[in-house]
């Protein structure tokens, strides 16, 4: 039997953006239905260990999210995918894969990002060599408290490579993913804290320390932790006879090609529009470049879309850091409130 839910706002995606927006809308007295396709809430935060720049534990945040969603007026459904959204007169109709129909006055898309698939950068041999892992796999190692290299033993030398899947026409992504540079700095420090004797080399094209305390953290990683930074993009990774990883790059400041053997290569994978973001944007005609959802006006109405009542927030629009995505969620709350009170 078909189930119909009537609500003020349907929020799609219970990552940081969706949770913060839903929580604040509910506190304003609106009826909010929050949908998450995964079984647990938290989105991509679930895959991380600690967050830059102050090393806050992701678990603490997840705990906070858990507390936020018990607010009045907010109903959360996990394991439910919103497959279709469309406008019907003054209402929005969303349908889910569980056969539910949600009738709402407004919809907030907070469908987030997906990590870049490192297989596409074939030259790094991801999926072929054990010693080549992604930043998310490294987060998993940090969560378990154990770092191991290609031979399963404690690594002596680790390379971190920035811009994997970002700023790269070869994979169709010309944009910067914004979070990887500072995350690489964070990794450098985390490695040195667990393995003080390990040598850490961070390869970069530009280091973009755009947030508060990022530059300071970068400096600290050099001064206090001795993390090495080499300006140059790794061009090739291959496996040596003793199962380590051989890298080729140019030290562009030295102007010489270099070769280096490491026990672990961490690929800082970029941010791409998630499948839900792409699908729902395509359905509603709001898909912008690279599959991200496009706002009505970057400078004037960045949470609006071309459709009144359909709002977007967070990394479904473009790469954001955690503080940025949460700020964007709060901004969306104000815009939605204005819309529902006919103030726009």
């Amino acid at each position: 039997m078909e189930k119909i839910i009537y609500t003020d706002i349907a929020v799609i995606g219970a990552g940081p953006t969706g949770i913060v927006a839903a929580y604040n809308l509910a506190r304003l007295g609106y009826k909010v239905s929050l949908f998450e396709k995964e079984e647990s809430l938290g989105g991509n935060i679930l895959k991380t260990y600690k967050l830059f720049p102050n090393f806050q534990s992701s678990n603490e945040l997840l705990q906070l999210f858990g507390e936020m969603i018990v607010v009045n007026n907010l109903s959360l459904q996990t394991g439910v995918t919103v497959t279709n959204i469309r406008k019907d007169n003054n209402h929005w109709i969303s349908t889910t894969n569980k056969g539910e129909t949600i009738v709402s006055k407004a919809v907030l898309m907070a469908t987030g990002f997906k990590p870049f698939d490192a297989h596409y950068k074939e030259e790094y041999g991801y999926g072929i060599y054990n010693g080549v892992i992604t930043s998310l796999e490294f987060e998993k190692m940090l969560k378990c408290g154990e770092i191991y290299g290609s031979n399963g033993i404690t690594p002596e030398k680790i390379a971190i490579l920035n811009c994997v899947g970002s700023r790269d026409a070869k994979v169709g992504n010309n944009y910067c993913s914004r979070v990887c540079c500072i995350n690489a700095v964070k990794f450098g420090i985390e490695i040195k804290e667990i393995l003080p004797k390990a040598e850490v080399y961070c390869f970069y094209m530009d280091l973009r320390m755009t947030g508060q305390f990022y530059e300071e953290l970068y400096r600290k990683s050099q001064q206090e932790y001795g993390v090495n930074y080499i300006r140059g993009k790794i061009s090739e990774a291959s496996q040596t006879a003793d199962n380590r990883i051989q890298l080729k790059a140019e030290d562009t400041l030295l102007r010489l090609p270099i070769k280096m053997t490491v026990d672990l290569l961490i690929l800082m994978i970029g941010i791409e529009a998630s499948e839900s973001t792409k699908e729902l944007s395509a359905q509603t005609g709001i898909m912008g470049e690279y599959g991200f959802a496009k706002s009505h006006s970057l400078l004037k109405a960045d949470n609006h879309t071309i459709h009144p009542g359909l709002f977007i927030a967070g990394t479904c629009k473009r790469p954001f850091t955690y503080p940025e995505t949460v700020a964007d969620a709060r901004a969306a709350v104000v815009e939605i409130q204005h819309y529902l009170e006919n103030k726009t």
Binding site: K248, D251, L254, L256, P257, I258, K259, M260, T261
Partner: peptide, 15 residues
Amino acid sequence: NFGFKISASRQLDMD
């Protein structure tokens, strides 16, 4: 001597 030498590598071996 074949009239040429094997060029030395400019690559810096960081190891």
